[in-house]
Design a protein around this nucleic acid. Structure first.
Lengths: 136, 136
DNA sequence: GTCAGAAGTGAGGGTGAATATCACTTTCAC
DNA sequence: GTGAAAGTGATATTCACCCTCACTTCTGAC
C-alpha cells in the first residue's frame, strides 16, 4: 500500500506541454522526439532536450502517448494514445500510415493461454508500397 | 535490361559463413549482429565487422534471413527465414519468444484492397510477461 | 596464363538516437 | 517558511549503424 494522500504529483507543466504537442498533432502524425523538441522550444524557449525525452518517457509509461518503432526508420515516433491500430510503412517513400486493424481479442486470449504468457500490448506493422508508389 | 548471362555472382564465402551461423542458430534464437560477428570471428579470424553487416544486409535482401526490430531492444536481431510468425517480448526478463501466429491472408488482402497499398511484409510483436515472470 | 573490370574486404571514422550524470531550481505538504 | 522530493538543462557517453577508402580477390574474355 502506498500513501497516496501525500504524493499526488500533478503532471509537470513541461510534460503537459509535451503532451499537448503530441495530442494536437493528432493520431497518425508520428512526430519524432526532435520534432517535438523543436515545437516545444517555440512555446517554451530554453526547454532542454532531456526534459522532452523524460516527458515522452513518462507519458508513454502513463499510457498517454504511444511510442512507435517502425523498421526502416531510425528514430522513435510518438502519437497520442488512441484506439489500437496497425501501421503501414511504404518502402519507397517512407510514408507511415495508420491502418485500422487490431488482432481480435479472442485470438490474443487464445495465444496467451496456449503459451502461458500475459499480453499487455500488440504491435502490428506492415511494409510494402503505398497507393502512390505502387506500380499501377 | 541487364545482361544477366554475364553477372551471376555466387554467394561469397563469407556470406555463406554468415548464413550458416544464422541458419544453425535455429529459428527463435535471435542473434544480434555482434553475436554473429563473434561467432564468425572464431571460424574466420580477421573477418571484419563490416563484412558481417554487409552479409546480413545481403542475406536479408535475398530473403534468406529475417531481420527483427523488437521494441525495447536496441540492436536488430536475425534469424533464418522461415514460416511467418510473431514475436513475444517479456517486459521483465527481456526474453524473446517465437509465437506461431500470422495475420490471415484474407485479412491482409482486404486491408490492402481497402487502402490501395501492396503489403510485402507483416510484423507482429507482443509485449507482456512471459510464463516465468508472470505473477501467478 | 594473364589481364581488366567487378565485386568483396577490413579498418577506421562519422552520425545520430538514446541514456546517464550532476548541480541547480522548483514544487508541494506540512 | 522549511525540507524533502521531483523536475530541469547542460553536458558527456554509449552504441548501433552506416560510409568511405585503399587494398585484395574473384571471374570471364582472350
Amino acid at each position: 500500500m502506498q500513501d497516496t494522500s501525500r504524493r499526488r504529483p500533478a503532471l509537470p507543466k513541461n510534460y503537459q506541454l509535451i503532451y499537448e504537442i503530441v495530442e494536437r498533432s493528432g493520431i497518425g502524425r508520428h512526430l519524432t522526439s526532435s520534432d517535438i523538441y523543436a515545437k516545444a522550444l517555440k512555446r517554451r524557449p530554453g526547454i532542454g532536450f532531456s526534459t522532452v525525452y523524460r516527458g515522452l518517457e513518462r507519458l508513454r509509461d502513463l499510457g498517454m502517448v504511444s511510442e512507435l518503432h517502425v523498421p526502416g526508420t531510425d528514430a522513435a515516433a510518438y502519437e497520442p494514445a488512441g484506439p489500437r491500430h496497425a501501421h503501414f510503412r511504404c518502402r519507397k517513400c517512407g510514408e507511415i500510415e495508420d491502418v485500422p486493424y487490431a488482432i481480435p481479442p479472442r485470438t490474443l486470449r487464445t495465444l496467451a493461454l496456449e503459451h502461458g504468457f500475459a499480453i499487455d500490448e500488440e504491435r502490428v506493422t506492415f511494409e510494402g508500397r503505398c497507393a502512390s508508389c505502387r506500380p499501377s
